[in-house]
Design a protein around this nucleic acid. Structure first.
Lengths: 342, 342
DNA sequence: TTGAAAGCGCTACCAA
DNA sequence: TTGGTAGCGCTTTCAA
């Protein structure tokens, strides 16, 4: 075991070469007051000559900061692949992190238990200064674990009453619009294929659909669970389309389920949107590539990531950031919605 | 700025409480010899009572290790979303990293320049002990940057002669099989939609296609560039299908381009696979969800990630790991290939 | 087997 | 404005 480290210039080297004290070098290099302009310049020049880059390790130990934040993705590998949220969200996080000298420590957990475990380990080893909490569950155990540890955290689309600062993007309005659009097209039997049970966003979408249905004076009772997977969408189609009074339109809680639903419906001999209208949620790019193109709800995971990171950094800096609400999701009208068959 | 750090138990606390020297505590906690069984047990017990978790920061500074490795993903955000490699590869990396106490520092770079820049910063700030090099270009400038810094790195599917240890998955054999399958179906005019210029994997797939064509005594001259994007696939279809002697089969260097190609072909009134056969590369799950289902080549990014991380950790440990070759990619036969039209 | 202490690279406090 | 120095939490060397 030989950590092959090239010898980097340290602040001591800079101070020596510049003929100043280490503390002066530190102050100069960090734009802290208390150094005369001339020595400051000299120190800077020497640092540049030496190719000095501060060691995050030394700084970390002395400032008690990791300069790194954590994100534990809790998602099945299979789902992960087709998931649009992931990449864009991380991209957004990075937009904020990078200019602030922070790095992202990413972990992938296959299950909720290991997700909690990973989160705890990141915190206990003081690898990170804070974490992102997405895919929040009802009574999510991570919340308590984080609170006992006093680790800064920011929630992505949590429910009201969430104990940490939150960043939210409303999708209820878009879901209302979508349902209304269906109603305007003459649909009365509108079903919902909901996501995985006990996730907050599953409930949020379900509730929005219910509200929209009730606004339209329509009964909101046809709901089946699809678990956010393609296969779940297939099964949902099997269950919903075998009914005597089958729905004429379906709102799926994500695009992957909508894909499964559409394919199964087609296999069952139904044509979309002539026999049945389908809409998804997420606005994944693949929705644009399939035929008919999938009507969906477009969210902005990138902005969510960017803002979450901003809030998290503020929190880490000891501020008390307010919750952030980014512009709401919008309906992405494409071809999978049509007039209700008569 | 108040780094809200709960006071964690340190090794000093453990040593004090156990009534031993710090060095003994360290030895006991790290399974190093030189501590009697009884004191070792006592120290362990105290550590457990105190909920002691070693601070990675302190350890990092003293061992000159970050216990973290870096991965800079250089990909367009739009492409990233539909990219199957990303998530699975990271998942694989994690499988190796986690049990070894390492974390992954992930960065997303929009361009090649910023990718290099990020890589350099990670290295210079000593945030990571090594990095993964994927999406390698011909004469990739990152290689030189890494070498000057003496930072351990492992290449993912690099060309022969790559200066760092490498992990590879052969796809030439599968491409040969695929082309042969096309030939067996009666195709003679088989085109290739290649990926983005100057990427090693673009060249590798192109070369494999050329070889396969020449093995079949067929001219390998119909090639258009598609840049690995959906739109590139669309443009390729426009160019290839407007020819007087249009190809009857097309091998696209990734699935996304194949999707674009298929959709455009359909728009032009061609039916797949009756009028034209299409195959992709990657085996993305969406290929299963579209109609006709896309024939492709299945790679194993997860295994690639797992092995790469293993090699990288060995390298960091000062060993001299040999290159690794994981089982080759395979043809994923689905529905987008059919007999040549006559 | 045990303990004391130096040192990793940096920040920050206190004197000069 | 400068310099000296303690200390962050750990590993590791060297004495006892």
């Amino acid at each position: 075991m030989s950590p092959q480290e090239r010898t980097h210039a340290t602040i001591v080297d800079v101070a020596n070469r510049a003929g100043v004290a280490i503390s002066s070098a530190s102050a100069a290099l960090n734009d802290r007051p208390g150094v005369s302009p001339s020595t400051r310049d000299r120190i800077r020049k020497v640092a540049a000559e030496l190719g000095y880059v501060p060691s995050i390790r030394g700084r970390s130990l002395s400032t008690k900061r990791a300069f790194s934040v954590g994100f534990v993705v809790e998602r099945d590998f299979a789902v992960l692949e087709a998931d649009p949220f992931f990449g864009a969200f991380i991209g957004g996080i990075e937009e904020t992190l990078e200019p602030n000298g922070y790095a992202l420590s990413l972990q992938i957990a296959g299950s909720a238990e290991s997700s909690l475990d990973r989160q705890v380990k990141l915190a206990d080893a003081r690898r990170v200064d804070g974490v992102f909490l997405s895919e929040i569950r009802i009574d999510d155990p991570r919340i308590e674990a984080l609170r006992t540890r006093g680790l800064p955290a920011v929630g992505i689309n949590p429910d009201a009453g969430f104990p940490f600062p939150a960043v939210r993007q409303d999708s209820a309005v878009a879901i209302h619009e979508l349902v209304q659009e269906m109603v305007d097209l003459g649909h009365r039997r509108i079903a919902h294929v909901m996501g995985r049970e006990s996730y907050v966003h599953t409930e949020q979408r379900l509730a929005a659909w219910r509200d929209a249905m009730s606004s339209a004076k329509l009964p909101a009772k046809t709901v089946v669970e699809g678990g956010f997977t393609y296969e779940g969408g297939v099964r949902a189609a099997d269950r919903l389309l075998s009914r005597k009074q089958r729905p004429t339109a379906v709102f799926c809680a994500n695009d992957l389920m909508a894909l499964g639903f559409m394919n199964r419906a087609a296999e069952l001999g139904l044509s979309i949107p002539d026999d049945i209208s389908v809409a998804g949620f997420d606005g994944i790019s693949v929705g644009e590539y399939i035929r008919p193109r999938l009507t969906s709800i477009r969210t902005d995971p990138r902005a969510l990531g960017r803002e979450s990171a901003r809030v998290l950094l503020e929190l880490i800096d000891g501020e008390a950031p307010a919750d952030v609400e980014i512009p709401p999701a919008t309906v992405l009208s494409r071809d999978s919605l049509g007039p209700a068959p008569r």
